[in-house]
């Protein structure tokens, strides 16, 4: 009886108190698709800027990261190429897809194991009701210096980034849905009429 009880207790306790790395692995393993809304706050030396939008992921490697406010910008990874469309600029850029975080955290989250392959993960303690991990790129990344991810309930709740220029970015995810049905067309990008398509 004792022998049976110990593993049962352990498995019950794990999801509640799991450290961040275990929650990240559970989040990735447990989701083929993800949709969420995000709120992004960038703080730099002169001001604070807020933006919000939506995120959709389909593993492996497809994502759509759309800013709705304060201006419309859509970033799509179709599995092969990365597309960035800015409505007011009326321009689109397209380049081979890599997991460059600077383009969008979705690129990082959409991979099956890109995070563990490309980053060294460390537990970073508990704060604000979330378990945190820090991710250090194995190859130096010129777009940020430190990256932290906060989890609860095996779900990514927040990301924090900082760079060597003194900028900090906080991204809060809300209304996270695991394995929703997402139309395949959301991960294809067709440039609207009248916009220039530039290749990087």
């Amino acid at each position: 009886m004792k022998i049976l009880f110990i593993p049962l207790l352990a498995s019950l306790a794990l999801p509640v108190h799991a450290a961040a790395i275990a929650q990240l692995k559970a989040f990735v393993a447990g989701t083929q698709t993800v949709s969420a809304q995000f709120e992004q706050t960038v703080t730099n030396q002169s001001h604070r800027e807020q933006a919000h939008g939506t995120l959709e992921i389909s593993r492996p490697g497809k994502f759509r990261w759309s800013y709705a406010k304060p201006f419309e910008q859509v970033i799509v990874g179709d599995g092969k190429r990365l597309w960035i469309y800015d409505k007011e600029l009326a321009q689109v850029t397209s380049k081979p897809l890599d997991s460059a975080l600077g383009s969008s955290p979705a690129a990082l989250l959409a991979g099956n194991n890109a995070i563990e392959r490309n980053y060294i993960l460390k537990e970073a303690g508990k704060e604000g009701g979330l378990e945190w991990l820090s991710a250090t790129p194995r190859q130096a990344d010129n777009t940020f210096q430190s990256l932290k991810m906060g989890f609860s309930g095996n779900t990514l709740q927040e990301m924090r980034l900082s760079d060597s220029f003194g900028n900090t970015t906080l991204i809060r995810f809300v209304a996270v849905k695991k394995n929703p049905a997402i139309p395949a067309g959301n991960f294809n990008f067709t440039p609207p009429k009248g916009v220039d398509v530039l290749s990087e």
């Binding site: 992004q40 960038v42 730099n44 002169s46 800027e49 990261w65 800013y67 910008q73 970033i75 960035i84 800015d86 600029l89 321009q91 850029t93 975080l101 600077g102 383009s103 969008s104 955290p105 777009t143 940020f144 980034l161 900082s162 760079d163 220029f165 900028n167 970015t169 991204i171 220039d196 530039l198 290749s199 990087e200």
Partner: peptide, 25 residues
């Protein structure tokens, strides 16, 4: 072609212009 965000502080004697990613870094 390239597309980027920027943040520019201008005064007659000094300019500072940052080219940023969509994430603000």
């Amino acid at each position: 072609g390239q597309l980027a965000r920027f943040d520019w502080t201008h005064a007659p004697a000094r300019d500072e212009l940052s080219v940023n990613t969509p994430l603000g870094t």
